[in-house]
Design a protein around this nucleic acid. Sequence first.
RNA 1: GCAGGGGUGGCGGAGCGGUCAAUCGCGCUUGACUGUAAAUCAAGUACCUUCGGGUUACACAGGUUCAAAUCCUGUCCCCUGCA
Length: 343
Amino acid sequence: MQLKDFGKQNIFMPDATRGAVRFLTSKQLKETGGEALVTNTLHLMITPGADRIEQLGGIKSFMNYDGIVLTDSGGFQVFSLLHTKKWEGKITKDGATFKSPRDGKTFELTPEKSIEVQMKLGSDILVALDDCRDADITREEAELSVERTLEWAARAKKHFEKLKLNEKGKLLSCVVQGANYLDLREYCAKELSKMDFDGYNFGGYVIGEDGKLVVEEMEVVLKNTPENKWKYAMGVGKPQDIIDSAKIGYTVFDTVLPTRNARHGTLYSFDQSDYLLRVTNGEYALDTAPIDSTCDCEACRNYTRAYVHQMLRVGEGTGMTLATIHNLRFYQRLIEKLNTNSV
RNA sequence: GCAGGGGUGGCGGAGCGGUCAAUCGCGCUUGACUGUAAAUCAAGUACCUUCGGGUUACACAGGUUCAAAUCCUGUCCCCUGCA
């Protein structure tokens, strides 16, 4: 796929946060069928650092991956680690400063810094730093989050244009915030649209308190952003959430669910009505069927449920690998079905 | 044979007169995970229950005591040292 066609069809990007999809080689990842992955600015900035990745030829060369690479801005990490006080740090009008729990070193993440790091990493698709918050914040907090997100987006865009003079073939996307306030979502979407980004990402927490996708908010963003630009539902989601998001017009997806769940024993299978097959459960100990009778992945073609069950139970890396390969293949097959209208 | 130590729930291992159905770890059962601090986390794990509680339980059999997994006696096992 050409970069210019990104998002024209549904696409699912596995998360290789620190430069690898856990337990998979780039070859194994490629064999699951995807054409792009997501990696993370903040994680790679802390270690090994953007300069080193640049010295080593960029993230694609470093991890020997020849697909499309999208780098997340680090906005979500600021939210999940700083706002929730898991990491020491503070958020200011310029971004965030925080101490790495690895070695206590202080880092600063501004809109400009985020773009610079993403450039050095050798990303194809960059994301402007946003002020990500929880779904249930007060209106005042949501307003502040939107204002900062807009200001940061403008600064990111400006810096991107400046650096892009020497770097061709890169795209920049932005993130729409506004929590569950529809008018703020609309305002944020409209203002970002004026800045003309290559793609529009739905940010914030996509799952409401009831555990359901915030479809209403997602629709408002669709209506108020340019039709010919991609809409990326960040962090979405469960198979049904992806189906529902695709139905209303989102085409770009990423989530840690298939990879994290694989490691935790929750596999996906079209053989199950709810797509879920908890392979470590006792009932699969003697099950010689493949995880999914319709699947063509390495795990399903060569191994039984009983084998994956046992390997995961004893904590063998091979179990993690097989489960991850399978779950990613499931997600890619789901996307293929969406693209051929057969789901 | 003599001397010493020990037998606790599926396993390992605490407790050493009442607050013990018995810390904890493992195992087992189930669930959660949505821009990854996550090969993580949560709940449950004798039996019965109208969820108030009730019934058997700490090798086995007796005993002391208001009260015993905890003290005493005997029996049966196990381990270590010396013969």
